[in-house]
Nucleic acid binder design. Sequence first.
DNA 1: AAGTTGGCCAACCGCGGGTGG
DNA 2: CCCACCCGCGGTTGGCCAACT
Length: 321
Amino acid sequence: MDHHHHHQDANKLVSRMNYMSDDQEEELTDIRRGPWTVDEDFTLINYIAHHGEGRWNSLARSAGLKRTGKSCRLRWLNYLRPDVRRGNITLEEQLLILELHSRWGNRWSKIAQHLPGRTDNEIKNYWRTRVQKHAKQLKCDVNSKQFKDTMRYLWMPRLVERIQAAAASSSGGGTTAAVASSSTNTSAYLFNNQNSTTTLDMGSSTINTLGQPNTLTPENSSAAASSDSLGTPVSELTECYNNYPVVNNNQDYFPGNQNMSYSYGDQSLTSPTTAGYFSQGLEFMEQNSEWMDGADDGLDSLWNVDDMWFLQQQQQFNSNA
DNA sequence: AAGTTGGCCAACCGCGGGTGG
DNA sequence: CCCACCCGCGGTTGGCCAACT
């Protein structure tokens, strides 16, 4: 399906090139811009196959491509590279994106390192189109506390639930034990108060993610795949909920009001379908889940009127604080 | 049927950090 | 030390296409 898509793209590009080749580009600059043609793609792939990647400016020249080095690099990394994954972002990936973004903010490249085959560009696009769209629908800022709360306490649990549901249905009957244990893990991943490590198995590779840290925890203990060992930037969200003093070592990603910390009055937060998410017992898995019968899979179907309700609670809570 | 809007994504740009001469 | 270039990141946008008027 993806392949068909690409072929169509390629054909369009060719026809598009025919009509654009004689106007502005390449008349005086000799540098082409805009969409890549199949020929260019082929040239680039071929050259890299023989000479390897890197040194992009000289590569562009010696490959005979009338492109900037930057353009070649971008095209290769985001599109032509053999191990690049494109297309539907799985539920697990979505969950991971939400989680990592809540921790690191718009560090797309860093986030992408934890999603094998995905490029920062794709994740960024995903975030901007899907996530920001919902913020707009809820009429609140993506960076606002309320919105982050809605993500963490509504969407992420719902994603977890859908992942579990999918796992349960795909593995047929009789594997209740496995499913149950995996749900406890994922619950812990979101809600546990102890430090715990949960692994999300995403096909080829396993991603280790630290459970929601109650204390400041160095990242190197969690992310085996990542080599950077600087302290984990702990998101304002996490800190606020754990009522810990704010020691944010990269404040630039969460500018402003990090110092307002408060805790939930948990009893006041009960909605018809989300009450279970806040209970200590973590029984939210056995909720009925009519909400998940959306035609598309992904965030879109995670949105419903409860979000509005939740958001209002948050705003009320903030104004009381 | 033609025009308009809006979602989406590939590609662009500027910038900052790194590096070699 | 400076200068010129390179690389990678994150923000932004041009333009295609489908869904509505």
